[in-house]
């Protein structure tokens, strides 16, 4: 059964890599924030799976919860930061919008 969890975890890591491509290539800053948030959610599940693979669920679940909370705070903080930038510099483009299209 642990082998099965291991395969699922490896598959999730592949998904994280795919999402990382969007994070690296995304045309706007907000795309990158979405990609990082999605990666964080996947990492939470991967950590829970690792707890079952190593049979140390009690420890890995604590790390997993901490990761979920940090991910949430980081996303909110980044969104808030890029929201307030426009009001500070009205002339400046706020995110690198539509440049790639």
């Amino acid at each position: 059964m642990e082998n099965y969890f291991l395969y699922i975890a490896i598959f999730m890591c592949v998904l994280v890599l795919l999402a990382l491509y969007r994070g690296a290539a995304g045309p706007t800053v907000l795309d990158r924030i979405i990609a990082i948030s999605a990666i964080g959610t996947k990492t939470t599940v991967i950590l829970a799976l690792m707890g079952f693979i190593y049979r140390r669920s009690d420890m890995f679940l604590d790390i997993s919860l901490a990761y979920a909370i940090l991910n949430f705070i980081a996303t909110i903080a980044a969104a808030k930061f890029f929201r307030s930038r426009k009001s500070i510099n009205p002339g400046e483009r706020c995110s690198i919008d539509e440049g790639g299209k």
Binding site: S64, A68, R83, E98
Partner: peptide
């Protein structure tokens, strides 16, 4: 595990809403 799931269930839509609002304010 269930508490982690509950937290994600509440936090993820909120984060989504925050990013969408940032995009709307930036007039993307």
């Amino acid at each position: 595990i269930l508490i982690i799931a509950l937290f994600i269930f509440i936090a993820n839509p909120t984060a989504t809403h925050a990013i969408t609002k940032a995009g709307l304010v930036c007039s993307v």
